[in-house]
């Protein structure tokens, strides 16, 4: 039983950064903007979180710094693509490249130093409950934020008027504009929300997952988050499922290896990615459903006519 709990906790830690980055990108894409810079924003959040936590001695300040830096960094993307109408794919990719390089430069002084770790939640009695205690009441704070984000975003997109407006912009920015909705303003806010989430996801890496700073420590997690958004066909609850399936397959393959199951390790390592592809294939077989969910103006530049 202890082992099951421990495995579940490990899965939650592995899934949390993917989940947060993906839920942020989901909102961005729902507004019709494709930001491929998730990896870059994440790694910037990671270096900012570690740096601020290390310099002030408070991981909480680190957490805030990660969010703020992620949002500010995404602002660069927003100015380029929204105000200057540059190509979103190219701008997003360069944001990733810039983030990886810039964070490496900023982090030079932090290499090889142990960081501050965010403490796990502890509620007397509740956390000490057998089995469920640690799972429900004993995880790191960002885990609870991630779950709150999923339900918050789901409620916002589908139950509020602003959410409806945001989705309408993603489906047809021209019509939304014609109705007098400030397309660019909404998109700015959406992109910055995505940046803040990616920054937070990066902060999770450098403040909880592995409290340290090393160059390129995101190691491709931003790209997995991007895949998860498509995987979920732009639905928040499916992002939750996707991130945990991904985490479970990943942790499961490590356990399989340690258990000595004679399957080639390269195959096991590629399993999570394989699973993503399989689900993508299954989802995209239903063309009508995919069409219904995909934001129709995704990735298109929008220049207001007046």
């Amino acid at each position: 039983m202890d082992m099951t709990v421990s495995i579940l906790l490990t899965i939650a830690t592995a899934a949390t950064p993917l989940l947060i980055a993906a839920i942020g990108e989901l909102v961005v894409e729902r507004s019709g903007v494709l930001n491929l810079g998730v990896e870059g924003m994440m790694v910037m959040g990671a270096v900012a979180g570690f740096g601020a936590g290390f310099l002030t001695g408070s991981p909480w300040i680190g957490l805030v710094a990660a969010i703020v830096v992620g949002a500010l960094f995404s602002l660069l993307f927003a100015v380029m693509t929204l105000s200057l109408a540059t190509n979103q794919v190219a701008t997003g990719l360069s944001l990733t490249l810039l983030g990886l390089g810039l964070s490496g430069m900023m982090g030079t002084g932090f290499v090889g130093l142990p960081g501050e770790r965010l403490p796990n939640l502890y509620i007397p009695v509740l956390t000490d409950l057998p089995v469920v205690g640690k799972l429900l009441f004993g995880q790191d704070p960002i885990f609870y934020i991630s779950i709150a984000l999923v339900f918050g975003v789901s409620w916002f997109l589908f139950k509020t008027r602003t959410g409806l407006t945001l989705r309408s912009i993603g489906d047809s920015h021209t019509s939304a504009h014609a109705l007098g909705i400030q397309v660019i303003k909404y998109r700015y806010l959406a992109v910055m929300f995505g940046g803040a989430c990616a920054g937070l996801a990066g902060g999770h890496l450098s403040l909880v997952y592995t409290p340290q700073w090393v160059e390129n420590m995101t190691a491709g997690r931003g790209w997995i988050a991007l895949a998860l958004v498509v995987f979920s066909s732009w639905r928040p609850l499916r992002v939750l499922a996707g991130a945990y399936i991904f985490g479970a397959v990943w942790i499961g393959q490590l356990h399989a290896q340690a258990f000595g199951i004679p399957v080639p390790s390269q195959f096991l390592s590629s399993l999570p990615y394989l699973a993503t592809i399989v689900v993508l294939v299954i989802i995209s077989r239903n063309k009508r459903l995919t069409m219904m969910n995909t934001p129709a103006s995704l990735g298109q530049a929008f220049v207001p006519d007046r």
Binding site: M3, S6, I7, T10, T13, A14, P17, L205, Y209, T210, Q212, V214, N216, M217, A219, R221, W250, I251, L254, H255, Q257, A258, F259, G260, S265, Q266, S269
Partner: peptide, 27 residues
């Protein structure tokens, strides 16, 4: 010795997960 291949020289997250898995299995 229980051996886990992570197929990477450098991925702090995966290395941490592998360590947790190994500890969970009695190492």
């Amino acid at each position: 010795a229980k051996i886990v291949w992570v197929n990477s020289w450098f991925d702090p997250g995966k290395e941490a997960d592998a360590a947790k898995a190994l500890f969970d299995q009695g190492a």
